[in-house]
């Protein structure tokens, strides 16, 4: 009897594991970054929707079944696929802060962390900021990072954050002396100087 329970649990668990992995595959194919012709994107889209439905992800966000399943996926560490650096290594993003002072001079800062491990995580964050479709969320995140820089340089009058995606040269371009270039995504101006009788809030 106990073996039956183990097997049932295993079957359900691996159904989720494999379905989520396929969902990852379909989401990639929908983006048209594979060998397959773009005419098949509708097929992948349909397959992705069916897989999402089979995982309860087409239910309303507040639905108890969806909430339970999603909680289980996160707790078991199976909430994402396994396409690390696949099918291509994504372009990174770069965020530069221009610190403008009252006397007119400008300094430049990059987001800073203390250790290499946090640096790798910062790269993930910048990649997310560079690719998210939610402009408001992007601005909020950049504002938080800018505020942290302002705390280090409280005399700066305004901070302009310039976000760009990094375009790496190919190997043959690099052999010819080309280096990485940047594609402008957006610029954001912030003023954290406290108003009279008010404390700065990012």
């Amino acid at each position: 009897m106990r073996r039956h329970l183990y097997l049932l649990a295993l079957a359900i668990h691996f159904y989720f594991v494999v379905a989520i992995a396929w969902l990852d595959v379909f989401s990639l194919l929908i983006r048209g970054v594979s060998w397959f012709p773009s005419s098949l994107e509708k097929v992948w889209s349909g397959a992705g929707e069916a897989t999402a439905a089979a995982l309860g992800q087409s239910l309303d966000n507040s639905n108890a079944i969806r909430q339970t399943l999603t909680t289980y996926f996160h707790c078991a560490g199976i909430d994402g696929g396994y396409g690390f650096f696949a099918p291509a290594v994504p372009s990174g993003a770069k965020l530069v802060f221009e610190l403008h002072y009252a006397d007119g001079h400008v300094e430049y800062e990059l987001p800073q962390v203390n250790g290499h491990a946090a640096g790798v995580r910062l790269t993930t964050l910048l990649g997310y900021i560079g690719t998210t479709d939610y402009e408001q969320l992007r601005e909020v995140m950049i504002k938080m990072l800018a505020y942290r820089v302002w705390q280090e340089h409280p005399s700066a009058k305004t901070i302009r954050a310039v976000l760009g995606s990094i375009s790496q040269p190919t190997a043959s371009e690099a052999a010819r002396g080309s280096s990485e270039s940047y594609t402008f995504i957006g610029a954001y101006d912030f003023n954290f100087q406290p108003e009279p009788n008010a404390s700065p809030v990012p």
Binding site: S34, F36, Y82, G83, F84, F85, P87
Partner: peptide, 17 residues
Amino acid sequence: FGGLLKCLGPGWWNGNS
């Protein structure tokens, strides 16, 4: 799935990735 996703795009065939 890691291997499948890699071989679906040209980047892991031509060395670009």
